[in-house]
Nucleic acid binder design. Structure first.
Lengths: 231, 231
DNA sequence: TGACCTCTAGAGTATTTACTCTAAAAATCC
DNA sequence: GGATTTTTAGAGTAAATACTCTAGAGGTCA
């Protein structure tokens, strides 16, 4: 039931994330799928169209993770938001990695991205205001805006940062997860000073739950000479 | 006195920052300089060597901005640090934009980058500890590390973020500066909760000094249809 | 069975681009 | 001023890659 069109997106996303969009040719995608280049171009008129479609999918999925609050929010809700954001950004990490290039080349995409960022930040603000109403955080609207902008930048750049430092780790599911969780930890650090009540009570527990081991963090900065043949 | 070798770097940096490394060919660089491709390749054996040299220069300049504290620090010192960091990252914004690709392609560069990031974070920690000794901030070492990581990510991604949303602004010196200062504002937001004493007294003043006007920020997210012929 | 439409194959191409090579100009040295 | 070395020009090339084009397979409906 999964049509060729969707399979192209899946494969392209996986290849882009692993090798970088720049290093993945349309022929590579077709080959990985076991289809012909002609077939690929039958479904997408060019490479940019694939990127554009992936961007749409990414955008939808991220906003799904950020439903406007309906009713009082708990600190568990907050953690779910964080996980969702980072999960989405992880899945679309190639996008943020090469975003600057796409935005420069494609004014239409740029337009969409602007409204997307603006919408996400608005959505985030309403969520944080909900958390404030629930007494879980204390901050002025201005502080929330600053916090949100920083959260966005952090979440958007974290996957690219870790993957850039440690591309060899790609495919190691455990390590991937650990690094992703460390990203949540960084976001926790960001908002920690504003937490109150139950959120504050659980701060330490959350920190230690999401923080990666020192060994894992070290792995980011120390030089791991890849064993030969370990591709 | 400025040799060809240095002029190549200057021109390449300017072109890379404006158009993205991916869109700038070695022939473009040579043409912009008014030299032949052969000449360019006489000085740098390939494009990656140019990027690598630019990276070295960037690295040196950033660390120059982050001298280890000798004696007690003031809040003015702190602001100078921030400005220096963002200034450096602005000048090398193409690097962070396309960093993932460079790191993936060049294991040697990756190694250097890892030690560079680690060194910068260490340096940053000693600076923050200096600020703590001066009573300007209050935070545990662990909090400082989290803060530093976030500061790094923020500073590294802010130039690319603004430029990506608004590439047409490139060349508008005033707008560039305003957006860069807004980056400092974001960093201020990051550390605001930890400030004490004089640093706290000047917080509001610093915020309003660095924050860009609402109109400028709006410009980031609203769609500016570029007037035709406005390249 | 035949007409029609969707989907696929795969060889092929036009273009871009990083880089080479040879020779000559310019600078330096004795 | 001649010899030698450094620097430059610029035409040219090999490889990569996004994309095209034609032909045909497979399904559907009459």
């Amino acid at each position: 039931m999964t049509g060729t069109k969707a399979r192209i997106l899946d494969t392209a996303l996986a290849l882009f994330n692993r090798h970088g969009e720049r290093n993945v040719t349309t022929n590579h995608i077709a080959e990985a799928l076991g289809i012909s280049p002609g077939n690929l171009y039958y479904h997408y008129r060019n490479k940019a169209a694939i990127v554009s479609a992936l961007f749409d999918r990414y955008q939808e999925r991220l906003l799904e993770w950020l439903p406007a609050p309906s009713g009082p929010l708990t600190w568990q809700d907050k953690m779910r938001y964080f996980e969702g954001i980072l999960e989405s950004m992880w899945q679309g990490r190639f996008l943020h990695r090469d975003l600057a290039h796409f935005l420069l080349q494609d004014p239409e995409l740029r337009r969409r991205y602007k409204t997307f960022v603006a919408a996400s930040l608005e959505r985030g603000l309403s969520i944080y205001q909900g958390l404030r109403d629930s007494g879980l955080i204390a901050a002025s609207d201005e502080e929330l805006r600053g916090l949100l902008m920083n959260t966005w930048l952090l979440a958007a750049s974290w996957p690219g940062f870790t993957h850039g430092l440690n591309p060899d780790a790609a495919g190691d599911e455990n390590l991937d997860r650990a690094l992703l969780r460390q990203g949540v930890y960084q976001i926790i650090c960001l908002e920690a000073p504003y937490l109150r009540n139950e959120a504050l009570d659980h701060l330490d527990a959350m920190k230690s739950e999401y923080r990666a081991s020192a060994a894992t963090v070290d792995l980011l900065f120390t030089d791991v000479s890849v064993a030969p043949g370990g591709e």
